[in-house]
Computed example of a mutant assay.
Amino acid sequence: MTLAAVLLDMDGTLLDSEKVWEVALHDLAAHHGGTMTAAARTAMVGASMADSMDILHTDIGRPELDHEYSTDWLESRMVELFSAGVPWRPGAAELIAVLRAQGVPLALVTATRRHLVEVCLDTLGRENFDVVVCGDEVPETKPDPAPYLRAAELLGVDPGRCVAIEDSPTGVASAVAAGCAVLAVPCEVPLAGLGATVADSLVGVDLPFLRTLL
């Protein structure tokens, strides 16, 4: 089977941004007079913004807090942090360069909302992606298959001929449900037993290897 496209998650997969999110989430918890636990932070990895706010508000004992207010505060803080630059995950920039040089269509598929993604694209390079699908541009976000199905649709390819690269259980579940072959590269949480091929990092990952996953 021919590889039609590679579909890439952003936070924790291409960019080492989960740690930046953690800083902002701790700041948000403190803003509300609480302290975020490690268990709550782990539960948020790969979760939608709505679910993350549910987890945080419950964790700090303030379930009555307004989701929209917390989301706006958090994303404003993230813009500040992202604007300082976000480091790449090991091997990610090199993999993108290799795939672009060989003409492989690429999609960025993220649960993060568009206005934050636009800041990150200053690091990632807008020219590197044929399609960008953000969390506020699909009816359901990860773990629903909608984001990956939408990316394949925009590229005009069969999702079954795509490799998705993810770092979270929700992201892996989304890509598997969409019918993609999945390469899981753990960042903050383990990813064994989720129906994906697991690699320690993207270092050394190349086109021949990705083709073997189909």
Rank of each mutant, 00 (worst) to 15 (best):
E153I: 07
A152L: 08
R113P: 06
E140P: 04
Y69T: 13
L95Y: 02
G125K: 01
L74P: 03
V86W: 02
L28M: 13
G103P: 09
G91M: 05
A178L: 11
R89F: 00
I60F: 09
S70G: 11
P87Y: 00
G179P: 13
G193F: 11
A93W: 06
L155M: 03
H32W: 13
W21T: 02
S174I: 14
A196I: 13
G204S: 07
L7D: 07
V117T: 14
S48N: 07
A177S: 15
I96P: 06
P63F: 09
A178Q: 11
L210R: 03
D167P: 06
C187T: 09
L3W: 06
L81D: 09
H115P: 13
W88G: 02
R161E: 12
H67C: 08
P87W: 00
V20S: 04
D144G: 12
T71G: 12
A146H: 15
M53E: 06
C180G: 04
A181L: 05
G195E: 05
P159M: 07
R150A: 10
P159R: 03
S52W: 02
N128K: 13
R114P: 00
A152V: 11
L210A: 08
H32A: 12
F129N: 07
S76Y: 01
D122M: 02
D136T: 08
V117Y: 07
T141N: 13
A93G: 07
V157W: 08
G91A: 02
L214Y: 12
D16A: 08
A192Q: 08
I96K: 08
D136R: 06
A151W: 10
T2V: 09
H26Y: 10
A107Y: 11
D66F: 13
F82W: 01
C187F: 11
G160V: 03
R62L: 12
G135S: 10
A152E: 12
E137L: 00
T2D: 13
A4L: 02
M53G: 09
I55P: 10
K142Q: 14
G46M: 15
D200R: 12
A38T: 15
A38G: 14
L194P: 01
A24W: 09
R41Q: 14
L95A: 04
T197E: 12
G85C: 06
D144N: 15
E127G: 07
Y148H: 15
G85I: 05
P208M: 01
R150F: 02
I96C: 13
V157T: 01
A47H: 15
L194S: 06
T37G: 15
L56C: 15
D54G: 14
M78P: 09
A24V: 10
T197H: 11
A111L: 12
V185Q: 03
H31T: 14
L154G: 00
D66Q: 10
E118Y: 00
R211Y: 03
A173K: 15
D9Q: 09
G193V: 08
L210W: 02
L99H: 04
D136C: 07
D130Y: 00
A84V: 02
S70A: 14
L191Y: 03
